[in-house]
Amino acid sequence: MSDEQRTDFSEFDPHRLVFHMSIGGVMICAFGMSLSILAVLGDIGWQIINLRIDRLGDYLSSPLAYVYNICLLFAGASFVIAMLGLFSLRYNSFSRYIAIIGGCTGLSIMLLGIYPFNDPESHRLAAVFFLFCSLAMFLMLALTRRNHRELCSAPLCLTALMGLISCIGLLMQLDLNTLDYRPCGELTEFCPVAFAMWIHTSATMLAGIGLALMARTLMHRAIAERAPSTDLLR
């Protein structure tokens, strides 16, 4: 491979960084959640839907809380790195805004792993920070769909809308005096906070996959645009 070809290929390294780190972060998060869910599923069954998802990181009640929290820490770090790659693409102002807000969201996920449920005061601040960062990220993605349709696919836009709805639901359940959500009752009772948290977490993970696919689309588009003047696709 010539030096020119190596330079051409290296120009797409940030695209690959966004793709692989976003996918990797989602996989790490899904791995930690799955193991933690399986650890408690045998005891409470499908009533887990009424359990706040952050209780999976409670060292006092969750058998695999350390797995859940470590995975949150690494998943958040992966997402921060992915957003650094997205920012370096400098596609347009919207992509840079998404990268900044997404980086803050990744940082908030790391903080949730550092300050778990059994550290109430710090965890509340981290949870509220995560809520507002993700709200801004979903809102920016929805606006991107309107102004730069090529950056936000229809599935990613639907994910953003689902995330916005869940964020609004959590905000309605937030007590501003304590910066905590309204308490849930027994596991046999439906808990709006827990239900909104599950949707919010799922939407955040799907948004990570959507951002990865967005980076891959931009890379393929850039390669296609350069194809007439290079031999990269031969």
Rank of each mutant, 00 (worst) to 15 (best):
A160C: 06
L51V: 06
E150C: 01
N147S: 11
D43T: 10
L156Y: 01
L174G: 04
L38R: 03
V128H: 00
H123M: 11
T105P: 00
G103Y: 00
R182I: 08
E189D: 11
I223D: 06
G208K: 02
T204Q: 11
F87H: 15
A75D: 07
R145F: 08
V26N: 02
L218S: 05
L17H: 02
C184S: 14
A154N: 10
C133T: 13
P116R: 06
A194C: 04
G106Y: 03
S202W: 08
A203F: 04
T144Q: 05
Y181H: 09
R6N: 11
F19Q: 10
F12M: 12
L73C: 12
V18Y: 00
R96K: 13
L141P: 03
I209S: 01
L51Y: 01
G57F: 10
M27L: 15
F138M: 01
L170M: 13
I100Q: 07
F132A: 01
L171Y: 01
A160I: 05
F94I: 15
D231V: 08
I199P: 00
L60A: 15
G106F: 03
M137W: 06
F130L: 08
P183L: 04
L56Q: 04
S10I: 07
V40Q: 12
C191V: 03
A136V: 03
L139Y: 12
I70N: 13
C184E: 01
L60H: 14
A142L: 04
S93G: 14
Y91R: 13
A65W: 07
G57N: 08
L218Q: 12
L72R: 13
I209Y: 11
L164Q: 11
R182W: 06
F138W: 01
T178I: 08
A222V: 07
